[in-house]
Computed example of a mutant assay.
Amino acid sequence: MILGRDSYCSFSIPLIILALGCFTSGVWAAEPAFDCAKADGAIEELICQDDQLAALDRKLAEVYAAASRKAANEHPPVLKAEQRGWIKGRNECWKSDDPRACTETEYRHRIAELQARYRLVPEKGPFWFTCDGDPRNEVVVTFFETEPPTLIAERGDQVSLMVRQPSGSGAKYQGRNEMFWEHQGEATIVWGYEAPEMRCTRKP
């Protein structure tokens, strides 16, 4: 069949529109919570091009909103300032050997941190651990069903949030300068930078 000029145009115009649509949609492949048209820096551009990272950004936005509601009467108000600091740290992932993996880890840990701190997920505990045979040396631990799993440990007036780490046996959690490693009801706890290990047993 021979197509006339009008017929040719009726076929070619939709194809051109389709091609332009494909090109336009490919500029930003994903939809995070922020506006990709205003993406600032390499990491935000990476998030806008990665469906999984964009989904994590949307998830974090939901969790942050829930945490903000619980933090409404928090004094001093620290959540907003902490979030700004976290964003700055996330954006430093461009310096990493694997910026994408770094960014994903930052998101997963921040989501878990907010869920635990503001009790947005189911928890187990608290459990009391007596360390080095001294009843006055006590650590109170609450576990949270986050992903990755987390715990909040309290010792006196100090509090540490820790994230579960891979381990050959037992359950190992790492905080900024603290470590909790439990195996069969006994735990090794480090509390503070270069502090000695404490041997702790869980109270019945």
Rank of each mutant, 00 (worst) to 15 (best):
I2Q: 01
D6L: 03
C9W: 07
S12P: 08
L15S: 12
I16C: 15
L18C: 15
S25E: 05
S25C: 06
S25K: 10
V27P: 03
V27W: 11
W28L: 08
A30E: 01
A30H: 08
E31C: 12
P32R: 11
P32I: 11
F34L: 07
K38C: 01
D40P: 04
G41L: 06
G41W: 06
A42W: 05
I43M: 06
E44C: 03
I47W: 12
C48I: 03
C48E: 09
A54D: 14
A55V: 15
A55K: 15
L56C: 14
L56T: 15
K59M: 13
L60W: 05
L60F: 13
V63S: 07
A65I: 11
A66F: 04
R69V: 14
A72P: 02
E74I: 00
H75P: 01
Q83T: 09
R84W: 13
W86E: 05
K88H: 10
G89C: 02
E92N: 01
C93E: 02
D97F: 06
D97S: 05
E104I: 10
Y107W: 13
A116G: 02
R119C: 11
P122E: 14
E123D: 13
G125P: 08
P126G: 09
F127I: 05
F129L: 08
F129K: 05
C131I: 11
C131Q: 11
P135C: 15
T142H: 07
E145C: 02
P148Q: 00
P149G: 02
P149R: 02
T150L: 00
R155A: 07
D157P: 09
S160Q: 14
R164M: 14
Q165H: 06
S167R: 02
G168E: 10
A171Y: 12
G175F: 04
N177W: 03
N177A: 07
M179D: 04
F180H: 04
H183C: 07
Q184K: 10
E186V: 02
A187W: 02
A187F: 00
T188Y: 06
W191E: 01
E194Y: 03
A195N: 10
E197V: 11
R202N: 07
K203W: 13
